[in-house]
Design a protein around this nucleic acid. Structure first.
Length: 426
RNA sequence: GUGGACGUAGCUCAGUUGGUUAGAGUCCCGGAUUGUGGAUCCGGUUGUCGUGGGUUCAAAUCCCACCGUCCACCCCA
């Protein structure tokens, strides 16, 4: 008999095992609650969109669009893509359903994203983001709200040590103007740039600002700053953003070289990073995108959002201690087994908050107790022939001091809540 | 996509200059009074040595390719 080669997961698309899911659920629960109390509503978006949507949103000259998208043709011949980020789909949905007519829209989403990159720590091909988008607000109070919201989330998660960097890119026109300024400045030095940066100069000159290459950084020191290309409106907006973020009590560092990899950003951009993460240090980032909705064929509608990487957050938030069930119900013998199913149903009904599980399969009482103990269960509820005859149920305490009580069946739920029997002698 | 390190039991890892039948701990299962857990003791299963080729009398060990993981570049959440 030839042995089949065992199946294996697709590279970069990982299983999330039961020992990790409680940690994830905790983070998701906290995020949901922080969003809820700030007035955000959840939006659920498809994992698949027309490929053209991402090209138009993210920009043709970006790595995401150029080489990281999962592209495929469906049976109709439509060119589709697995979403590499969620803002594009969110904007599409706002336009398609005219959500802007319903007033201010504060939205949040969570789910998997797909990018065909080389996997490494904190970077996988299917990864998960939680994000927020707000539509219809052009004023700097929106920046303050969104930065405060992220800060509140770290707080609620007990996360410290994150660093916020923030910058402004100005309007689309100002950014375009600065692009030309940068081109003029760097062109004579083209030969001094490393190959990657020479390519950036041609395709996306702004990305030179956050280059790590030595020669490029040296040249940047004498490059005209982006701030010089800003008009009075953008300057006023930027200054107010900094005032309000300061007033919100959020610490930040202005980084004039911070640019984001997506083309749709205007005005404020920012990034929360952690020194504990290695090369993939960005935990959360985002910015304003005042022109995107209109560019995609919607109404003029300013907007801003951010997204966080759940895998990276999971790596930073300490994992809570996982607790075992409140009780394990152990039947001994065929008749007890049949009785215990009804008992279990009653207990689930009467103690809805508790985790009470059935001891499944064969095995001696000893073996079952051993198994129950290893799951961390606090009580064993034992039903055998003796108990059936006497009309009681044995409850054995598995934590702390040894203790065994016999409880009339009718009082079992009450006993499990209080932990003390009405009459311990029986 | 580029460069480097690594890949032995479910997990963490030993395995000498190539040399008999590949090991430890842990975990899991069973036992030490027929229905009573944790500690201890005893016993048991751990395995295509990542995969496929090659060199050799002989390969976990040396060579090549592929796959995967990790680190960095790149990119970004």
């Amino acid at each position: 008999m030839k042995r089949e080669t065992p199946p294996a997961h697709v590279r970069g698309m990982n299983d999330l095992l039961p020992r990790e899911t409680p940690h994830w659920q905790h983070i998701e629960r906290v995020a949901r609650e922080v969003f809820r109390r700030a007035g955000y509503r959840e939006i659920r978006l498809p994992l698949v969109e027309e490929a053209a949507l991402f090209v138009r949103c993210i920009g043709e000259a970006t790595d995401i669009v150029e080489k990281e998208m999962y592209l495929f043709e469906d049976r109709n011949g439509d060119r589709l893509a697995l979403r590499p980020e969620a803002t594009a789909g969110c904007v599409r949905a706002v336009i398609e359903h005219h959500l802007e007519r319903e007033g201010i829209q504060r939205l949040w989403y969570a789910g998997p994203m797909f990018r065909h990159e080389r996997p490494q720590k904190g970077r996988q091909r299917q990864f998960h983001q939680i994000g927020v988008e707000v539509f219809g607000i052009p004023t700097p109070d929106l920046e303050a709200e969104l930065l405060l919201l992220s800060d509140e989330l770290w707080d609620a998660l007990g996360l410290t040590g994150l660093v916020l960097e923030i910058n402004t890119l100005g309007t689309a026109a100002e950014r375009e103007q600065y692009r030309n300024v940068l081109l003029d400045y760097f062109r004579p030095h083209r030969g001094e740039l490393e190959p990657d940066d020479a390519r950036r100069l041609d395709r996306n000159p702004l990305r030179l600002l956050d280059s790590k290459s030595g020669p490029t950084r040296a040249l940047l020191e004498r490059a005209p700053p982006l701030a010089d290309s800003l008009g009075p409106d953008s300057r006023a907006h930027w200054e107010r953003v900094l005032e309000l973020v300061t007033a919100a009590g959020v610490d930040y560092r202005v980084n004039p070289y911070l640019v984001r990899g997506l083309d749709y950003y205007t005005q404020t951009v920012f990034e929360w990073t952690s020194p504990a993460l290695g090369a993939q240090s960005a935990v959360c980032s985002g910015g304003r995108y005042d022109n995107l909705v209109e560019e995609l064929g919607g109404p003029p509608l300013p907007a801003m959002g951010w997204a966080l990487g759940v895998e990276r957050l999971v790596a930073l938030v300490p994992a809570g201690r996982s607790e075992g069930p409140d009780a394990v119900v152990i039947p001994l013998g065929a008749q007890a087994e049949a009785e215990c199913l009804a008992l279990l149903r009653d207990l689930h009904r009467m103690l809805p908050g508790r985790e009470i599980e059935l001891s499944l399969g064969a095995g001696s009482l000893k073996a079952r107790l051993k198994r129950a103990d290893r799951t961390g269960a606090r009580r064993a509820v034992i039903v055998g022939e003796d108990e059936l005859k006497r009309g009681v149920i044995q409850v054995k305490v598995l934590v702390g001091a040894r203790r065994t009580d016999f409880v009339p069946r009718a009082q079992l739920a009450e006993y499990l809540v209080g932990g003390i029997p009405a009459d311990p002698s029986q």
